[in-house]
């Protein structure tokens, strides 16, 4: 297997009681790319993410990360290996401060996470790195704010900082701009661009303006199966894509224009 691809799936299938949500998907994600996974609602994008991170067991098929078969591995182990996902619905620890949110991710590799006899102060040495990460998403002055009190856009930025704290090789982002207005979307585009430096990103994104700005390669999913794959130009010119992806052009001009 070539090491050109960070992630590869072979014949990935997920059936829910006879309903095929993911249908024989062969995905190849190139190292260093920002790769988009697009498709209409219910196409199976989130389900693919759930399979890749083993939040759901695949019905059939195999998943390779850096050429290693990770299909039998558990979610937590996959995350520690360097495949870290975000969620379609903002995923934070609401009753912790922003700094504590990021610190949970750092603790994952720090080896003290089972130490129930140590004082809370023993975590202070991670705070400096937390501040750097918060600063990188523009949240430094909110370090001590309890997360529920943050605005939606900031919660998503915090989520990204927490994910980045894991130093993932492959970042899986499920609609990072969902529910955001223009300015926030631009900020997220910048954050993702920055986050993608030195790593690979696979992202689900409905906003085609964002896709055209960020992504090197696009896979279109429809009814669980791969419809087509290519760069933005070839995918957006494909009549089949327009057909399944109603509103393609209006969405893209609306946001990109």
């Amino acid at each position: 297997m070539s090491d050109q691809f960070v992630l590869e799936t072979q014949g990935l299938v997920k059936e829910f009681k006879g309903f095929v949500a993911v249908d024989d998907v062969n995905l190849k994600v190139k190292r260093g790319h920002i790769h988009a996974l697009i498709g209409p609602n219910g196409a199976g994008k989130t389900t693919v993410f759930n399979l890749l991170t083993k939040f759901l067991p695949p019905t059939r098929g195999k998943i390779f990360f850096n050429g290693k078969d990770i299909t039998p591995m558990k979610s937590a182990a996959i995350a520690r290996l360097g495949v870290v996902r975000s969620f379609q619905i903002s995923a934070v620890f609401p009753h912790m401060t922003a700094l504590e949110n990021v610190r949970i991710a750092l603790q994952s590799f720090e080896g003290s996470s089972f130490h129930f006899w140590k004082s809370g102060g023993s975590l202070d040495r991670l705070n400096e790195r937390c501040m750097e990460l918060l600063d990188s998403v523009g949240l430094m002055e909110f370090a001590d704010t309890v997360t529920v009190e943050l605005a939606y856009g900031r919660k998503r930025a915090l989520e990204l900082a927490t994910t980045l704290a894991m130093e993932p090789q492959l970042l899986l982002l499920d609609e990072p701009t969902q529910g955001m207005g223009g300015e926030d979307v631009d900020r997220v585009v910048e954050l993702v661009r920055k986050a993608a430096e030195g790593r690979t990103v696979l992202m689900v994104e409905h906003n085609l303006g964002v896709v055209s700005k960020l992504c090197d390669r696009i896979t279109v999913l429809s009814q669980g199966a791969v419809l087509t794959e290519g760069d933005y130009q070839s995918v957006s010119d494909d009549p089949r894509v327009r057909e399944v992806y109603m509103g393609t052009e209006s969405t893209s001009t609306e946001v990109a224009g």
Binding site: A91, A105, S113, W117, K118, S119, M166
Partner: peptide
């Protein structure tokens, strides 16, 4: 001691958002 310890932080995280804790590499 337990609830304020590094381990207690992870328990809190699991209580507040279990899937997120899993996605951050914790075998909850």
């Amino acid at each position: 001691r337990i609830v304020t310890s590094p381990y207690g932080q992870i328990l809190k995280a699991i209580k507040q958002n279990e899937p997120r804790a899993v996605s951050l590499g914790y075998n909850v």
